[in-house]
């Protein structure tokens, strides 16, 4: 079952600027799909249209089978949204803000439960203006979860969180995915997408430039082996030499190349100091894509 379907989405702002140009993707039920991209790539502009905040200039969007803009009342009770920048009245307490939000929902979970999920129960009586940036982010997440959503939109959910809170948030998101919640995530933390997303798309200047599972996106980019060889020996493989003397070998067959290199070193009694071998990471793929497209 498809939870989110986006076809040929184009978004134009009043000045005529095209922030999103013909973007298409699908998110299956219970799946996490991540939208990645440099700042200004069009992620938030895309997500806002999928959330139904704005009508697409061209193309179509379906969330749980409905048009999120025209059929807002059918879709909203089943989705939860964490905006990149959402606000709360600064003079309300955490519990009051959550109760206000719960009062607008069809079937909210108990406020205490939602606050406990994001580890904010102990801050319930604190005014919103006294929260740290990370705590405000978690309150935002609590509100997104209050309505027991089937589809969850998370726009930069862990920006401003300390490492521990980020891990906790990841665990919470994993638990939601196991319960069958569909998640559309935007983030500029690549390790976040790598850790959580089933599939992802990389956006650049309003277009999707790569899309697939993490390994599908990453496999198009070579693995790297790097080390510092002793001077004066001829390597058996093609390598880039850096000024420090360290060399980097790029290969699409990491295992066999590494094997060849190690056998050669053993035969010649050569030490490869600081040996480091790794598959391409999402970060490398991302940087390469951003560079190519620039």
């Amino acid at each position: 079952m498809t939870a989110i379907e986006v076809r040929g989405l184009t978004r134009r702002y009043s000045g005529g600027f095209e922030a999103v140009r013909g973007v298409s993707f699908e998110v299956e039920k219970g799946e996490m799909f991540a939208l990645l991209g440099t700042n200004g790539a069009g992620k938030t502009s895309t997500v806002e249209v999928v959330e139904g905040l704005s009508r697409p200039a061209e193309g179509s969007v379906r969330v749980l089978g409905h048009d999120p803009f025209a059929e807002r009342s059918l879709v909203r009770p089943r989705m939860g949204v964490m905006l990149q920048e959402g606000g709360f009245p600064p003079d309300l307490t955490v519990a009051e803000a959550a109760r206000m939000w719960a009062g607008t929902l069809t079937s909210p979970r108990p406020v205490d439960e939602a606050l406990a999920l994001v580890d904010l129960a102990h801050r319930a009586s604190v005014r919103v203006k006294q929260l740290s940036g990370g705590e405000r982010r978690r309150l935002d997440l609590a509100l997104a979860l209050l309505g027991k959503p089937e589809v969850l939109f998370l726009d930069e959910p862990t920006t401003g969180l300390d490492p521990e809170s980020r891990r906790n948030t990841w665990e919470l998101i994993r638990a939601l995915l196991r319960e069958g919640v569909t998640v559309l995530l935007t983030t500029h933390y690549l390790e976040e997408a790598q850790a959580l997303a089933d599939r992802l798309a990389i956006m650049h200047r309003g277009r999707i430039v790569a899309q697939g599972t993490v390994s599908e996106v990453v496999d198009a980019y070579p693995s790297r082996i790097s080390f510092t060889p002793p001077s004066g020996v001829a390597l058996p493989v093609v390598a880039d030499v850096e000024s420090s003397g360290r060399v980097t070998v790029r290969t699409n067959e990491l295992q066999s190349t590494l094997h060849e290199l190690l056998v050669w070193a053993a035969h010649n009694n050569v030490e490869l100091s600081g040996l480091d071998a790794r598959s391409a990471s999402l970060e490398e793929a991302f940087l390469a894509i951003a560079e190519e497209a620039a």
Binding site: E51, L53, R72, S73, R76, P77, V81, L83, E85, G86, G87, F88, P89, P90, W101, T104, L105, T106, L143, G147, F153
Partner: peptide, 20 residues
Amino acid sequence: ARREELVLKRLRVGELTDPE
């Protein structure tokens, strides 16, 4: 005030209609 605090934006992704 509510617009500048981004409260209206937040409320608008919820279930309430604009007039509500």
